[in-house]
Structure formats: C-alpha cells, structure tokens
Design a protein around this nucleic acid. Structure first.
Lengths: 216, 216
DNA sequence: CTGCCCATAGGACCAAGGTCCTATTTCGCA
DNA sequence: TGCGAAATAGGACCTTGGTCCTATGGGCAG
C-alpha cells in the first residue's frame, strides 16, 4: 500500500492551453517531478480524488468554463485541501488578492521563472505533507471519539474542562462510581494514558471547553 | 484607564499625498471613524506605539523613503501586530501577492470604492480585537510563568506531558515528595485549578510537550 | 424472546494527588 | 556575615482516581 508512485507527490497542472501544458510537463519532469495535466477544471474535478494523492495544483487563472478561482472555490466547498499555485497571463490585482485570501499558496505571473515555480512547488509539497499528517492524526482521534457512547462523550467533555469526578457526577446526575466507570472507558477507548493527552486529543477534534476558564 | 478615546479603534493612514490623506480623513470621519494621518512610513513609526492603540493601518504602497511593503516588514520584525490594508495606484501582482503572503488583510486598488474600504476596515478591527484579546490572555499566562522558579518550570513541563509524580521524580532525580511541593506551587502560581487548564495555559505559551505522544 | 450494549451503582481496595508542619542545605545579595 | 529564596525531603493524613467483581434494568436486533 505504500508503493512509490502513491507516496511520490504529484504536480497537477490545469491549463486550457495545450502548449503550456506540454511545456510545463516537460519542465517538471526534467526536474524529477511527477505530474498530471488537465485541459479544464471539470476534467480535473472528475479525475482527482483527494485521498491517495499528495501533491499540489498548478492552476491557470483564465480558462473557459470554470476558471481558476472558481475551481479553487469548488475545491474549498467540497472540503478538499490541496495547495494551489496560480499562474496567470493577464490577471489583475483584485483576482490575485482574492486568490490569496482564499488560501492560495502563490500567484505567479507569466512568464513564470522556473525557479519561482519550483520554489512554490516545494513549499506546496511541504505544506501538503504537514496538512496530511495533521489530518491523519485528527482522523485517528475522531474515529476513537466516534466509538464512544453518548454518555462517555459527556463525561469526556467535563473531564477536559477539568472537573472532578464528584462534580461531573453532580452535573450529569449520576453517582461518582458511574462516572469513574465511564471515565475509565473514555481513557481506554481514546487510547490516552493521561488527562493531559485527553485534553490535547479533544483539541484536535475542535472540542471547546465551553465558556469556562474559572476566575481563579 | 478606559477612556473612550483609548478604546475606540483608530484608522492610521500613511500616504505621501496630502490630498489623498485629506480625502481619506474626511471620508473616514464622515463614517464615524477615528483616524490619524502620516505623510511617511518613518513619521508613522516614530509616533505609533503598539500598546495603547487598537486599530488598523491603511497604507499606500508607493511612497518615497520606506515604501508600504517595507513598512509592513519593519513592523513585522519589530513584533508589532497591526492589521494592514494596502492601497495602491500603480501596484502590480507580485507586490500584492507579497503583501498578502506577509499577512496583509487586504490590498485595494485606486480608485478605492468606499464600500470596499469600510468593509476591510471592519474586518481589520475585528481581527485586531481578537488578536489583542488573545495577546492579553497570553501575556497574563506568560507573566505567571515568568514567576515560576526553574525547577517549577521543569515540573510544569512534565506534568503537561502527562507524567505521574513518580515518573517526574525519577526524571528529575528528586523524591516524589519534592515534586508534589513543586507541583502544588505551579498550580498556585499559574492560577489553574486543574491539570486540564494547565495544559491549555502551557499551549498558550507555545510550550510543546516535546516529541512524546506514546504509542498506546 | 433472548442475547447484547448501555447506563447504572455498590463493595473493596490500592495508587496517586494534595496539604499540613517541620527541617536542612545551598546560594547570592545586601 | 547573615538573611531570604530555592530546592530538598520526611511524617501524617485526607481526598481523588482507578480497577477489580458483582448486579440490575432498559432498549434494540436477530
């Protein structure tokens, strides 16, 4: 499952101009990058699947059909997180600003200096690796969290808020004994050896300790 | 200490063109914003002090002396965190991208639509408020942390990593008894009522639990 | 209708955390 | 040179947390 072709990051090129695609592909291959080209945003959307494909997107801004910015937004809405490097021939500042605000990693103007492109791609790969590592961790924690019963989740929240078993028992209207049992199972199922780690696990899931933070 | 003029956010305008400054000031005042204008980056740097001044910077890109991007960088290096809205007459895409990468909130082109400017300012103010709130919280925690003795800091780190007193004692070559004392003082001095809160406090300071995270 | 999961909880017991009080040693500063 | 802060630690004692085993009752799917 870890064949080289799957872990090697790929540069996905989307540009309506066949000549540009060819030239980019040649350039990228000459530098040892794996690349795949698409003539349109739709073509890319059809073929690309987020899961197994680490890499980045090199995206032309001006295209018939969905343009670059629209594809960026579409990917955003679908929850896909692939770093995007825009390339434009006749772009303007508002477009570039919009793209950057929407999280683009870079926005290069033609003629693109090879060096700039390679640098951007390197940063994009590095960003993608970090992103994927975080994502994988979060997913692992989320899976464990999903295996908790509703009651166990309530207990988890209150433990993370720093309450004592006694207080949790009161909050939930159960006996301290019962809380201890739930709590023990929470620690087991979440596979954390300490409350400190449980707090961090909860944070990876975006679980807020509500508006507590006692006035000391 | 909470006089209105100090808590009202201010729009700081830096532009070398007196006519532009006048017109921006008029526009801002008409919308009820407090504003201050400067003819140069240096003038701004001399007068502006980060602490008491919530607000944002509306910054011309093209200026004699330090230009907008250079001022942005100077502020960055000095650790100042004020949201920046760029305005440009003849900017180009690379400049706009550079500004956005460096954290600019927006990058508007002349002629600026009033509506766009106001929107950007609102976002900038909101960003600044959040930023300041976070900063204040972090500073408060940092102050308490600074009051810890070296040994107490060591104990704190290990507690946050989720170690038992016994294990901490071994790590530090002290008796469990001593660790308990340090630990108790850490909780007092940091003014947290629980380990969960201590973990969060440590995170606000950017204290990493090293490369632990046991393999369960 | 019969398991199975979930939530409940008591008893017993031990480990871990926390807090008194007391006491010693080492350092650096006044 | 003496005083205070920091680090050390033992004794005593209580609270909390955690884990056995056992047991009951509700709800749901096979």
């Amino acid at each position: 499952m870890t064949r080289e072709t799957e872990t090697l990051p790929t540069v996905f090129v989307v540009d309506d101009d066949a000549a540009v695609r060819k030239s980019l592909e040649r350039l990228l291959r000459s530098e040892g990058y794996r690349s795949e080209s698409f003539a349109s945003a739709d073509g890319f959307l059809e073929r690309w699947r987020p899961d197994p494909a680490p890499g980045c997107l090199v995206l032309d801004v001006e295209m018939p059909g969905l343009d670059g910015l629209q594809l960026q937004q579409a990917l955003h809405l679908s929850g896909a997180a692939i770093p995007i490097i825009f390339i434009t021939g006749h772009g303007d500042i508002p477009r570039s600003v919009k793209a950057m605000k929407a999280g683009a990693l870079d926005f290069l103007t033609k003629p693109v200096r090879d060096e700039d492109l390679f640098k951007a791609i390197q940063q994009a790969f590095s960003w993608d690796r970090r992103q994927r590592a975080e994502r994988a961790e979060r997913d692992a924690v989320a899976e464990r969290f999903a295996a908790l019963t509703p009651r166990e989740r309530e207990v988890l929240m209150l433990v993370v808020r720093g309450l004592l078993n006694k207080q949790i028992a009161f909050e939930l209207g159960a006996s301290e004994k019962t809380i201890k049992i739930h709590r023990g199972r929470v620690m087991q199922k979440m596979r954390v050896p300490s409350v400190a780690d449980l707090v961090r696990a909860a944070q990876k899931l975006g679980l807020q300790p509500d508006v507590s933070q006692p006035p000391a």
